[in-house]
Simulated scan of single mutants.
Amino acid sequence: MVSAKSAKLKEIKKIDVGKSHWKKVMILIFLLLVCIISFLISVGNGSLDISNKEIIKAIFIEKDTVKHQIIWNIRLPRTLVAGLVGICLSLSGSILQGVMRNPLAAPNIIGVSSGAGLMAFMIYIVFPQYYYLVPLGAFVGALLSTLLIYALAWRNGVQPMRLVLAGVAVSSLLGAGINTLMTFFPDRVPGVIGFMVGGLSARTWPHFNMLWPYALLGIALTFLFPKRLNILMLGDEIATGLGLNVERTRLLFIVFASLLAASAVSVVGLLGFVGLIVPHTARLIIGSDYRYLFPAAAILGAATVMACDTLARVIFDPVEIPVGIVMAMIGAPFFLYLLRERRLS
């Protein structure tokens, strides 16, 4: 009698899990549709509005027209860069929030982006002939800054507020390094404003080609280990009891987060708040299971940055503002909401 009841409960549980799985799959499909719409809007809108039908014709059929040149050489690479940057920063933020168990952990807030930005800025300004090494240099800077922040915040464990304070301090120090370079090399920083706030202006195929190998590597590595991050979220003691090497896993994900953040920073500069807003939004929509949270954050991140970049292009047309300004207008109130409502400590 008991065994029959237990079997029935297991069967009901399997059905519930199956329903939950398909519900989350449907959410992912819906987010993917939103991302596709955001992509089409980004490619089709600007100084010259182009319909979806004209976009397809200009890319695949009418290749000798002005619209083809506008779409293929200007808007398409810029939109693809925006999408990849959104994916990288969203996944990086998701990882950092999980590894550090801190809802304020995001690449731009705790100093990861600043470390990547300083190294990228140094190569662009001091060693411009080695510009192709910018993503690699940014990765080294992001990784070192993350490890430094984590070490400074460690005292019999990591407390959320101590981590944020350490990140703010390190970020300020690295920001001072960037300002020092600007002071010593003022003639070499004509596009520094776009880099400091995060901008996608004039991003073309060379930028995309520089970004995608590092971004693809970081994305692939991240999607290989969602279950490990799920276990890590249970707490160090439980994770160790389940056979997980906690410190090795934490270090592994810090490397992934640094690679993703560095890939984005090397191309668009210090674009903020994507890694804070998107993971939280994705978590509200689809839950905290990283098997679903990673793809949801990636898709939503791409859609968000593409949409914000479109808005940055058209809101004051013909004047274009950096996408980082639009993200800051959205992200700052969200950050204050977290501080006020979550009572973080």
Rank of each mutant, 00 (worst) to 15 (best):
L181V: 15
T310M: 15
L104A: 10
L32D: 13
P103N: 05
V197I: 03
I219C: 13
T222K: 02
G18M: 09
L217M: 13
D317N: 11
F316S: 11
M182E: 04
K14A: 15
L338A: 07
P206H: 01
L9Y: 13
V66W: 01
V2K: 15
F30I: 13
A105P: 15
L89Y: 05
N179C: 04
F39Q: 00
L181T: 14
P103M: 02
V197A: 00
A4M: 15
I325F: 06
L244G: 06
S171L: 11
I219V: 15
I277M: 15
L144E: 14
F208A: 00
I74L: 14
F60Q: 10
A166M: 08
V140Q: 09
P186V: 07
F256L: 12
N52W: 12
W22V: 08
V17F: 03
G117A: 14
A142D: 14
A303G: 07
S3W: 04
L76N: 06
D317L: 06
A105I: 12
I178E: 07
L229D: 07
F30D: 08
T146M: 13
W72N: 02
A220V: 11
I277T: 13
T304W: 04
L284N: 04
K19P: 00
L165T: 11
T310N: 14
L234Y: 07
P107G: 02
I149Y: 08
I70V: 08
L96F: 12
V265Y: 07
N73W: 03
L244Y: 11
W154D: 05
A215S: 11
A298M: 13
K63P: 05
M329C: 04
G111H: 14
I315G: 02
Y214T: 10
D16C: 01
G243M: 15
S345W: 12
H21S: 03
I325C: 01
K23E: 08
E320I: 14
L344W: 14
V112C: 09
P226Q: 00
L284M: 09
M182Y: 00
L211N: 04
F225P: 06
I61F: 08
N45A: 10
R78C: 02
T240D: 14
V164F: 02
V81R: 05
R248N: 03
V126N: 10
T79H: 01
K23S: 10
S145V: 14
Y214R: 00
D289Q: 13
P128N: 11
L229K: 09
P135D: 02
T249S: 10
P206T: 05
A239L: 12
N179D: 06
E54V: 07
I219H: 13
I325D: 03
I123H: 09
F139T: 12
A166S: 15
L84F: 10
L28I: 05
A282V: 01
Q97L: 14
L9A: 13
F316V: 08
A239R: 06
I87Q: 08
V168I: 12
R155A: 10
L118T: 10
L224N: 09
K23F: 08
